[in-house]
C-alpha cells in the first residue's frame, strides 16, 4: 500500500534503529506453541509481534465433494481467515478476495513440503484464524500451519519457514510492521523457504525494488527465515520434552504426600 504514509517519518534513524527500536535485520518477538487444540489432529499458536494466529490441521481424510480428489496425491485445503476483531476497523466476516488469495498461496507453499503422494484420494485440511493483525499475517499463518502439520504427524520433506522483508524510507528491512508497510516508498515481500534445501515456496512482492535492493532483501529473508525455522523446531521438541519436566515436579509432589500420610 505505497503512497499512504507521511513523507516526513524517518523509518530508520542514524543509529540504525527503526520506529519500534529494532535493527534493520531484527525480527519482532516470536512465540510458537504446538498442540494447543485437543480435538484437532494437530495444532499450533503463533504470536509474531502483535500478530496472533491459530492453526488446526485435520486429516488426511476423505475428500468431499469426491470429484475434487486426486488419485495420485492428497490435496491441501487451506482456510486462511481473519477474525472481524483482528483489525482496527471491523472486518466483514465473509471471506474476501484477499483471504481466498492467501489461502491459495499458502496451500501451494505447504503442498511443496508435505509428502502428499503418500495419501492418494484424500485431503489435508488446515484452518488458520488470525486473531490479531499487524502486517505479515500470511507469514505468521504459514509458520503456525507448518508447525501444526508436523504436530499432526503428517509426513513432510521439511518444515516451511517464512518471513517478510521489504523497504521503508529507502532502507531494506526485515519483518515490516503496519506502520512501515504504510511508508510512501514501501515494498513488502513475504517469502517462505524449505530450510534444508533453501527452495523458495512462497514469494510475493508489492512495490518496486532496484536489482541491488532485491539482492539485499533476498539475502536478508534467507537469514531471517533460518531464525524462524529454529523457533519452530524448538517448539515441536518442547511439546514432548516439557512433559518430562512436569512429570518430575509431579513425582516430588507425590513423595511429599506420602510423608504426610
Amino acid at each position: 500500500m505505497a503512497g499512504k504514509g507521511n513523507e516526513n517519518v524517518t523509518y530508520v534513524d542514524k543509529s540504525g534503529k527503526r520506529l519500534d527500536g529494532r535493527k534493520v535485520d531484527e525480527l519482532r518477538p516470536i512465540k510458537v506453541d504446538v498442540g494447543v487444540l485437543d480435538r484437532a489432529d494437530g495444532s499450533a499458536y503463533v504470536e509474531w509481534g502483535h500478530n496472533k494466529a491459530i492453526a488446526a490441521v485435520y486429516g488426511p481424510r476423505e475428500v468431499l465433494p469426491k470429484h475434487m480428489a486426486n488419485p495420485y496425491k492428497a490435496i491441501m485445503r487451506v482456510y486462511y481467515r481473519m477474525a472481524p476483531f483482528s483489525v482496527p476497523e471491523h472486518k466483514r466476516p465473509a471471506p474476501g478476495r484477499r483471504e481466498i488469495e492467501i489461502s491459495k498461496v499458502l496451500s501451494e507453499a505447504l503442498d511443496a513440503a508435505v509428502l502428499t503422494e503418500r495419501f492418494p484420494q484424500s485431503q489435508i485440511e488446515v484452518h488458520i484464524d488470525i486473531l490479531d493483525a499487524d502486517a505479515g499475517t500470511r507469514i505468521t499463518a504459514l509458520t503456525a500451519a507448518s508447525a501444526a502439520l508436523a504436530d499432526a504427524g503428517i509426513p513432510m520433506r521439511d518444515l516451511v519457514a517464512g518471513v517478510s522483508v521489504g523497504k521503508a524510507g529507502g532502507r531494506v528491512i526485515a519483518d515490516l510492521t503496519k506502520a512501515e508497510e504504510d511508508a510512501s516508498d514501501a515494498v513488502d515481500i513475504p517469502m517462505a523457504i524449505l530450510p534444508s534445501t533453501k527452495e523458495v515456496v512462497l514469494l510475493q512482492m508489492d512495490g518496486i525494488l532496484t536489482k541491488e535492493e532485491w539482492k539485499d532483501a533476498h539475502e536478508l529473508a534467507h537469514k531471517a527465515a533460518e531464525k524462524v525455522y529454529n523457533l519452530q523446531k524448538e517448539a515441536l521438541r518442547k511439546r514432548y520434552e516439557s512433559a518430562e519436566a512436569v512429570e518430575e515436579t509431579e513425582e516430588i509432589a507425590e513423595t511429599k504426600e506420602e510423608v504426610v500420610e
Binding site: D41, G42, L115, G153
Partner: peptide
C-alpha cells in the same frame, strides 16, 4: 519425514512417529 523418535542400530535407521492417522 515426520516428528518422531529416532530408532537406529548398526544396520538400519527409522523414525517412529509420535502422532498421525
Amino acid at each position: 519425514a515426520v516428528l518422531g523418535l529416532l530408532n537406529e542400530n548398526e544396520t538400519y535407521v527409522k523414525v517412529v512417529p509420535l502422532a498421525g492417522k
